Simulated assay, not measured.
Amino acid sequence: MKTAENPAPAAGPRPAAPAPPAPGAPAAGRGQDSPLRRKLADQSRAWAFLIGGVLCFALFSWYPAVRAVIIAFQKYTPGSSPEWVGTDNFTQVFHDPEFGAAWRNTLTFTVLALLLGFAVPFVMALVLNEIRHARAFFRVVVYLPVMIPPVVSALLWKWFYDPGGGLANEALRGLHLPTSNWSNGADTALVSLVIVATWANMGGTVLIYLAALQGIPGELYEAAELDGAGILQRVRHVTIPQTRFIMLMLMLLQIIATMQVFTEPFVITGGGPESSTVTVLYLIYKYAFIYHDFGGACALSVLLLVLLSLFSAAYLRLTRGGED
């Protein structure tokens, strides 16, 4: 009796063998997390830039500010260990004969610089916005003083204001007009410094105003012209309302900057004549590097910081309330 043999498997197509991966192609299971890796890499770079910026601010801005507040309550001179004295430094600077003059000169300088340095750049921006030919040339000419180092600019104006052979008095003599003492006169020194500061710093302000003016829709001016509005009326009812936010922010920044004026009094007048150009920052310099009293210098710095902080907070609150 024959044993039944195993039946042969049914004939049919065999499954195709998997094709080998192409050269350079990622293996199976790899590359699926590449979007996650890219996201982590982007976040790592962002955090690296953020941490670097924070460290720079902490090292060069925040630490000196905190250190100055601490030294304001200490007797600190080079070569000696700090000694806590409480509010003695503030009492000392309050009784300084130059303390009142420094604050008075600083506030006067700020008001004059605001009246002159706030109106002139705006008018110049209006003029540049209307110029149709050689726009780039005039913008470079207006911005050129900003590119000159502040000390060089102050030295140029010091020669310009020389009462003997300075260019200012030479021009007045050529026009048969009376000459002036300019920065050498107690009555004219502060105004002379305001002119220098306005000339040296208005270039950036003019360009900011010019950018704001070019962002105003032309349809508003066309509608104003159809209503019969003149140039001054268009500026009052169209230009100023459309640039109001920029004007308010620049006003705040200018007040903060002019309250810290130092280069012009230091280079041109040296605080004179008769302490007529001694500012708060110049008095801080004298306490630190002439009197070697770093405690008094830091006390004055803290007073200036508190005043500017209170003013900035009140200013921002008032302007925000006006916008609401």
Rank of each mutant, 00 (worst) to 15 (best):
T277V: 02
F73D: 05
Q260G: 00
F49G: 13
F137D: 14
T198E: 04
G24F: 04
G12K: 08
V267Y: 01
R173S: 12
P23G: 05
R173C: 03
L305Y: 01
D96S: 11
L156Y: 13
L40W: 15
A46S: 15
S312N: 04
V151E: 01
R45H: 13
G174S: 04
R244H: 09
S81K: 14
E274D: 14
I131R: 08
G165F: 08
R14L: 14
P26C: 00
V141F: 09
P82C: 08
H237D: 00
D227T: 02
G117W: 03
A28K: 02
R139M: 05
I231S: 08
S192C: 09
G203K: 10
T108I: 04
R45S: 09
F109N: 01
L107K: 01
V151T: 12
P217W: 09
A102T: 07
W182H: 10
L310Y: 03
I246L: 12
G100R: 15
Q32G: 06
P7I: 12
A101D: 01
V93N: 08
G166Y: 09
I290K: 08
A46N: 14
A125K: 01
L115S: 06
N105Y: 13
H292F: 15
L126H: 12
A119K: 04
M202A: 07
T258E: 03
A189P: 09
L112C: 04
F245W: 07
R45I: 15
